[in-house]
Write a protein that binds this DNA or RNA. Structure first.
Length: 726
DNA sequence: GTCGATACAT
């Protein structure tokens, strides 16, 4: 039915007018589409009511609140008005400022000034709100100037709006100046200022402000505590968060559901899981957001089983909580569980996003299993993630950590729009494979393509140099980092330099780096010097470094063992006894060696002297055979690698039962002809195993790839890719 | 007739 045809001709009578007017208002409120509004607009004109500004404003506001709003229609209706009263214009400004296009409010304002529409002090709050939401500093400042000129600036609502605007534009000091000038500050003004500090990361300014608020007559409400507590959580500021919790309790602020949620999320975000759990267990109902925060918190705190418990108790699961649980496993050294969970998620029909993929790829990287890596890449390619740069960057890293340098290179090549992470990942890939030449070449190519290197790029480059013994090149790279790229070296970079000099037997230079670095050396750096001293039998400096390690990490197994060996070599038996006793008292145990080998997509793990494998007899039999065959080729067990005090026979066994030798023998039993044997080890490869692998590669004509704690060794025809420099 | 409107997780 056509609305227009049913309308009688307007009869000029005030009663009829009022009737039409009210009817039109109701129709405007109910309008659900632009075409509907246009029909009503036509009726307004036909009825001769188009001089009614209040009707036209209602029309304009209705155009803004449609499910698919038309701001341009609203504005054109507005511009047709004749000097609308400011309280009507302000209605529209308010609507526009809250809409998805707050900039339309500023546009309307510009036109109002142009057309000479009257603006009053009530126009400013919505305009400032628009400037806050965009955020638009220069427009906001202009409004400030305008308000000052017309003396609207003494209005507390305008003042609060200015505080919000300056905070949102990052001008927190101006916000504070405005705030300080306010003669009367209500709870909203205080909240805006506090919120502003939180939004600008100025958490340390919040507490003093709350104290000041307490001293004034304004009582803080539970809403602002929710905001502040969650801000503490985001900043990981536990001390501050706790102080707030105490403040809340002491001041008997009502802890409502939302504040409870904020507290749980804050404690979980700060890894203070006992506190989080205390509140969480009382929380009812337990929503998905808080549960996810608990999962992440437990994961970060290393309590992955507790995280899983929460996960399993969730009645409703979304992509985010799946991703949180998966990345928890990936980051807490349980990559297999991460991958299992990913499979389960796919089975249940939950579609991963980029974030999930990055966790899963990093799980594959730490697992180091080629089979899984290939599976994940096909998933990436089949599900349109192959064009996503961060995913490709992660794939490069994954293949590098799986020992698949060529596949890493393939991914690198297919990425055309490379960013600094792409380049750094590939440089890092060459570095862990001991290929310093290609790492440096790639760096030059990167420079030619005008991609600026960052700190991570230089870690890769320095790492490559130190693992290849390129002392001079490393020195130059370090200097270039500072001089050409204006980057400030971090601990990692100094660590690489210590490593570079240490591995090259330039122990004096290594010590000088430590002495001259601007920050305190950490356990890794002293550990690196200690390791160098161990290689070059430098007992005096070694003892010194080991002691520094123990100061920083009293439970460091390697430093205890190293010291004990130094003393044993020097026949200082009393000191040896002391160290042993110390280890016993402190409960320091040597980290047990563990090696994984992947065969037919299955992963087998061996610990040192492992007797748990199903085919244990066969494996040890094979080990005896291999040892005999290698002895013919010149192998003699290198007893200096045994760090415990045992008799000769036991020492030999301890050496031969290193986990990577067991894994190798299992690989030799099960491998397919022509395939390469890949072993992933948790510790550094010892000299004896290194020699063992080299000889095995020659005697059996196979390629063996071993990933140890820090790098790859590729053994072929009796030679290792690390050139015995590791 | 005006300002904020709580938590929000990978």
């Amino acid at each position: 039915m056509n609305v227009m045809t049913t309308i009688p001709q307007p009869i000029i009578s005030s009663t009829v007018h009022v009737n039409h007017y009210n009817q039109l208002l109701t129709t405007l409120s109910a309008a659900s589409s632009l075409s509907h509004l246009k029909q009503v607009h036509a009726r307004i004109i036909r009825l001769g009511l188009d001089r009614s500004n209040s009707l036209l404003i209602k029309l304009a506001v209705s155009a803004c609140t449609l499910s698919s709003p038309s701001f341009d229609y609203a504005l054109s209706a507005f511009y047709q008005m004749h000097n609308p009263e400011p309280h009507l214009s302000n209605k529209l400004l308010r609507e526009l400022s809250r809409s998805i296009k707050p900039e339309k409010a500023l546009l309307a304002y510009a036109k109002m000034r142009e057309k000479g529409f009257v603006v009053d002090s009530f126009s400013l709050p919505p305009l400032l709100k628009a400037s806050t939401r965009i955020p638009a500093l220069s427009e906001g400042m202009e409004l400030h100037g305008f308000a000052t000129k017309l003396d609207f600036v003494s209005d507390p609502f305008v003042q609060t709006g200015l505080v919000a605007m300056y905070s949102a534009c990052g001008h927190i000091e101006d916000a504070r100046m405005m705030f300080d000038k306010m003669p009367e500050r209500d709870v909203v003004a205080w909240n805006m200022m506090i919120d502003g500090y939180c939004g600008n990361g100025r958490y340390n300014d919040v507490l003093p402000l709350i104290e000041e608020m307490k001293r004034s007559d304004v009582k803080p409400d539970e809403k602002i505590f929710s905001t502040v507590v969650s801000a503490c959580g985001r900043a990981g500021n536990l001390e501050f968060g706790k102080a707030f919790h105490e403040f809340i309790t002491e001041n008997k602020v009502v802890i409502d559901y939302n504040l409870q949620c904020s507290l749980v999320i804050m404690y979980a975000g700060c890894c203070s899981m006992d506190m989080a759990a205390n509140i969480f267990k009382k929380l009812s109902p337990k929503n998905i957001v808080v549960s996810t925060a608990m999962i992440t918190g437990y994961s970060k705190a290393g309590r992955i089983d507790d995280a899983r418990l929460i996960f399993d108790q969730m009645t409703e699961k979304d992509l985010i909580c799946w991703s949180a649980m998966i990345s928890g496993y990936a980051e807490r050294g349980q990559p297999q569980k991460a991958l299992q969970l990913f499979d389960k998620m796919l089975t249940l029909g939950v579609k991963p996003d980029q974030v999930t993929m990055l966790s899963v790829i990093s799980a594959c990287a730490s697992l180091g299993a080629v089979h899984n890596a290939l599976k994940i890449q096909s998933y990436v390619d089949e599900n349109r993630f192959s064009g996503v740069l961060p995913v490709n960057n992660a794939l490069i890293d994954m293949y590098a950590k799986c020992g698949e340098l060529d596949r890493a290179k393939q991914v690198f090549t297919r990425v055309h729009r490379r960013n600094v992470i792409t380049w750094s990942s590939m440089i890092g890939a060459y570095a862990v494979h001991g290929d310093a030449i290609n790492a440096l070449d790639l760096f030059h190519e990167m420079k030619n393509q005008k991609t600026a290197p960052n700190e991570v790029t230089f870690v890769g480059l320095l790492y490559a140099c130190s693992h290849a013994g390129l002392v001079e090149e490393g020195r130059k790279i370090f200097a270039s980092m500072v001089n050409d790229y204006n980057l400030t070296p971090k601990r990692e970079h100094y660590g690489c330099m210590v490593d570079l000099y240490g591995r090259a037997n330039l122990l004096k230079e290594a010590l000088e780096v430590i002495e001259q670095m601007p920050m305190a050396p950490n356990v890794v750096i002293w550990g690196s010097l200690m390791a160098a001293c161990r290689i070059y039998n430098e007992t005096e400096l070694g003892e010194f470094a080991a002691k520094r390690v123990l100061e920083l990490d009293p439970y460091h197994d390697g430093a205890h063992i190293f010291l004990s060996n130094i003393y044993a070599k020097g026949k200082k038996w009393e000191n040896v006894g002391e160290i042993r006793k110390l280890m016993q008292n402190k409960g320091v145990v040597k980290q047990r060696g563990s090696s994984r080998i992947e065969l037919d997509g299955e992963i087998h793990e061996f610990l040192t002297a492992d007797k748990n494998h199903a085919r244990v007899d066969e494996i040890y039999e094979k080990l005896d055979a291999v040892v005999s065959e290698l002895e013919v080729a010149g192998y003699t067990p290198n007893m200096s690698c045994v760090l415990v005090d045992l008799d000769e026979d036991e020492k030999t066994k301890a050496l031969l039962w290193h986990s990577e030798k067991l894994a190798l023998c299992f690989g030799l039993l099960r491998r397919k002809r022509g395939s390469c044997i890949r072993i992933i080890k948790n510790l550094r490869v010892c000299e004896d195993c290194h020699n063992f692998m080299k000889l095995a590669s020659k005697v059996y004509g196979i390629q063996i790839v071993v990933r140890d704690r820090t790098r790859f060794h590729r053994y072929e025809d009796g030679v290792c890719s690390c050139k015995d420099y590791w």
